[in-house]
């Protein structure tokens, strides 16, 4: 009988302790942000989708279309074309397409690039209504950004 009562009291007390902890947390500042109105800044190493890096001096992509990124990609989602203009010393990229539907954001393409011609985008709002919107033409995207 004594043990029974003791158990009720100790059990009840443990519940009160839990409620007291929850009550204290009620008055703490929230740790979340109200997403559509506020958003977090992505860290410098955040791996978004890739984008081309432009040479500030010439205004042209640094990419020389060596295909190292396409070969390093585990999901074969990079396809690119390049040509060598007459009189130029190196090849230039003419078409760079990323199929984002199969990209797993592993970053092996950026690592494989010996010319620092690829970087990660910090954009994470990538919702789309059509599948075609995820087949990204990186040349167009980068040019659009430059014009801005």
């Amino acid at each position: 009988m004594w043990n029974y009562l003791k158990e009720i009291f100790s059990g009840g007390y443990s519940l009160l302790v839990g409620m007291w902890i929850t009550l204290r947390h009620t008055f703490r500042r929230p740790v979340t942000v109200q997403y559509p109105y506020e958003s977090l800044k992505m860290p410098a190493r955040y791996r978004g989708h890739i984008q081309l890096v432009f040479d500030a001096a010439t205004g042209q992509p640094k990419c020389v279309a060596c295909m190292a990124c396409a070969r390093a990609c585990p999901s074969n989602c990079i396809s690119l074309e390049g040509h060598k203009p007459e009189g130029a010393t190196r090849r230039v990229v003419s078409k760079y397409t990323l199929d984002f539907t199969s990209c797993s954001l592993c970053g092996l393409c950026v690592e494989s690039c010996s010319f620092d011609a690829l970087e990660f985008s910090k954009d994470y709002n990538l919702a789309a209504t059509k599948k075609d919107e995820y087949v990204m033409d990186l040349m167009k995207q980068a040019q659009g950004k430059q014009e801005k």
Partner: peptide, 28 residues
């Protein structure tokens, strides 16, 4: 309730690891 507290703490680890690795779960 405890889920909210543990996720609060876990989120801090994920933030730390994200700053180093670039991803929150699939670190690679």
């Amino acid at each position: 309730t405890p889920l909210l507290y543990t996720f609060d703490d876990r989120e801090q680890i994920l933030d730390l690891l994200e700053a180093v690795t670039g991803a929150r779960l699939t670190f690679c």
